[in-house]
Structures are given as structure tokens and as C-alpha cells.
């Protein structure tokens, strides 16, 4: 028994080493720095709560945290509806396994390409002289270009949905494929309508996939700063940008305090969701 444990520990040692060195130590350092003092150009070790006091006293910070949660909520709802529908179509309406795999691959391929390029590729569509505005003006629906298509909260949302819906599709499709088809037949034999089968059989049985997808999407959106900065043309703020702006000004202690609060809110949210699903069992 002891020997077997030693064996497992040796096998897990490289993983543990990487996580200690590049995850735990850096986070502990951030926690420490959040209590440090900053001057105009530098910062030094200390133990005081000014950074947190300032953060919690700032109306802007509260608003930005609120916006971040709201954005996560909106993107979560949209990606869930789209992701579930796509997975449902693939799992229950595509009949041959060959087509199922082909269409599933088609859905996942964009994941392997660069996110920043995928964001850039919205410019020719949504820009002031972009394809959407050109088409709408050509059709006489609008007289002047819509300004809110690009560099707005709309485009930030759109990009999130574009980039992250896949994180919903894959786990939901995975759980749906494991649903015993005879359960559906039984429901049908029992006289259930298509809609009743969906709400009483498929949705409850897809819950683990829905939870895993939700964890991915919420974690990604809450901690984002790249997409928000690019797609809003630096006009929209979220917590990630609050942190990166502070870093840009070399205000590391204040950035660290915001980061710690962000970390705690993400971990609490995800922790609550993890209670509802056993990830290890669902893989």
C-alpha cells in the first residue's frame, strides 16, 4: 500500500511541481502584494488594508464589478440557449454517426484558431463602413451607419458568444450522447409529446454537461480583459481591465487587491456550481 502511494506521488510530482511554482506561488505573491504600499513610481512591502479600503470605497469599482457579473450572466444565458440547441440537434436529429461526428468537428474547428484573429475578423462586418451597415443602408432600412455595432457592449457580447459557445456545445453534446435512447422511446410510448420529452427527459439528464459548460463560460467571461478591451475599443470596463489598467500605471498593490477580490468572486461562483456536478464522473 505504502509503495503504491509512493508510486502515485512520483507520477503526480511533475504536475504538482508545475502547479506550485506557476500557480500557487504567484497567487500567494499577489495576495501578499495586495497589502503592500504604493508610491507614485514604486511599491514596497507593508501590511496595511488601504488598497482594499480604497477598492471597496470606490463607486467605480462597484459598478465595474456589477457590469462584469452582468456580462457573465448575459453571455451565459445566450451561449446556453445556442449551445444546448446545437448539441440537441447533433445528438438527437442527426441520424448517422458519421454525419454526427462530421458536424460536431465542424462546430469545434474554430476553437483551434486564434481568438484575437477571430475578434479582428468582426471589423469588416460590424465597422462603420462594414458589410452589415452597407447592407442595411443599401436596403433602405437605415439612413446612417449604426454606431453601436462595433466598439460597444453589443460587440463585446457578440464576440464572447462567438468565442465561447463551443464550451457549452461540447460538454452538453457529450452528456446527451450518453443518454440511453430507450428512455426516450419509453417516454414516447408513454404518450409524451416531443416537447415533454425535451423538458422531462433530455434536459434533466443533460444537467451535468450544462453545468460543466456553464463553469467554463462564466469563468472565462468573468476574468476576461483581452476581448473586452479589443471589442469595446477600450471604451468598456470590466474587472480584468481595471486590473490591467492599474498594472499599466505600475499600481501593483491596488491591482493585486482587485485581483484578489476577483479571484474570490470567481472561486465562490464556480465552487457553488461544482457542488452540483461531479466533474470526474462526467468525463
Amino acid at each position: 500500500m505504502r509503495r503504491a502511494n509512493l508510486n502515485s506521488w512520483l507520477l503526480a510530482a511533475p504536475l504538482t511541481g508545475v502547479l506550485v511554482m506557476f500557480l500557487i506561488l504567484p497567487i500567494l505573491l499577489i495576495v501578499a502584494v495586495s497589502f503592500w504600499t504604493a508610491d507614485a513610481f514604486t511599491f514596497r512591502p507593508d501590511f496595511q488594508f488601504d488598497n482594499y479600503r480604497y477598492l471597496f470605497g470606490s463607486a467605480v469599482a462597484w459598478k465595474v464589478f456589477g457590469l462584469t457579473f452582468m456580462m457573465a450572466g448575459i453571455v451565459w444565458a445566450v451561449t446556453l440557449v445556442i449551445g444546448f440547441t446545437i448539441a440537441f440537434f447533433l445528438a438527437f436529429h442527426v441520424r448517422t454517426q458519421k454525419w454526427q461526428m462530421a458536424l460536431f468537428l465542424l462546430t469545434t474547428i474554430p476553437f483551434w484558431t486564434s481568438n484575437i484573429i477571430r475578434m479582428i475578423s468582426w471589423i469588416p462586418l460590424l465597422g462603420k463602413n462594414g458589410l452589415v451597415n452597407q447592407t442595411l443602408m443599401g436596403a433602405g432600412i437605415i439612413d446612417e451607419p449604426l454606431q453601436w455595432l462595433l466598439y460597444s457592449s453589443f460587440s463585446v457580447c457578440l464576440a464572447f458568444v462567438h468565442l465561447y459557445t463551443l464550451f457549452m456545445v461540447v460538454p452538453i453534446f457529450n452528456t446527451m450522447m450518453r443518454i440511453d435512447k430507450s428512455l426516450i422511446e419509453a417516454a414516447r410510448d408513454g404518450g409524451a409529446s416531443g416537447f415533454q420529452i425535451l423538458t422531462n427527459v433530455i434536459i434533466p439528464l443533460s444537467k451535468p454537461g450544462i453545468m460543466i459548460g456553464s463553469i467554463f463560460v462564466i469563468a472565462l467571461v468573468m476574468s476576461d480583459f483581452v476581448t473586452t478591451r479589443f471589442m469595446s475599443g477600450s471604451q468598456l470596463a470590466n474587472v480584468g481591465r481595471l486590473i490591467s489598467n492599474d498594472i499599466g500605471l505600475l499600481q501593483y498593490p491596488s491591482a493585486a487587491a482587485t485581483a484578489v477580490v476577483l479571484l474570490i468572486s470567481v472561486l465562490l461562483t464556480i465552487g457553488a456550481m461544482l457542488r452540483l456536478v461531479d466533474i470526474r464522473k462526467e468525463l
Partner: peptide, 10 residues
């Protein structure tokens, strides 16, 4: 799930 910016900054 830990925000990337924490990993990066840390």
C-alpha cells in the same frame, strides 16, 4: 478557472 490575469501578473 482562475482568472488568467492573476496567473500572468503573479
Amino acid at each position: 478557472v482562475i482568472p488568467s490575469i492573476l496567473v500572468s501578473m503573479g
